[in-house]
Amino acid sequence: MPTFVYMTRCDGCGQCVDICPSDIMHIDKGLRRAYNIEPNMCWECYSCVKACPHHAIDVRGYADFAPLGHSVRVHRDEEKGVIAWRIKFRNGKKDMDLLAPITTKPWGTGIPQLANEAAPSSDMRDSQLLFNEPKYVRLDDGDLHTLESNGLKLKEGVYY
């Protein structure tokens, strides 16, 4: 479903240009508004739709298989930590509102700054452990699994 931009809503802020993973939202130099320069490389990922502060971007199903007259709109709110969707069918019979959380914490606050963590000991460096392990693997006192601990061998040949 390639995206398109409503002329009257876009103010040329460039948020969509900044986010599109396919590099296909560009600003038209004459109109100073955004548009999709390469619809056949659009994944309908909605990244730009979610990022547009003016809801100026919408999606119209791919011409090769999607009839006209449907709508899937979205509003993503980082502060509230939710995303809201509205799906409308072509025949008007179905109209759904769906809401989902996008985070359980105020944005970014749960992520550690690893530069401030205590440096790993040389024992840990020589072990197979990663940051926060073994604790974070099992959240008990158990250690990391090894071939020995699990009674395993790697054997050449045909095993099923």
Binding site: M1, Y46, A66, P67, V72, K88, K94
Partner: peptide, 14 residues
Amino acid sequence: TVGQAVLWAATDVD
């Protein structure tokens, strides 16, 4: 895969 939702809305597949 938002596109699948768009497609079902476009083709009235419930």
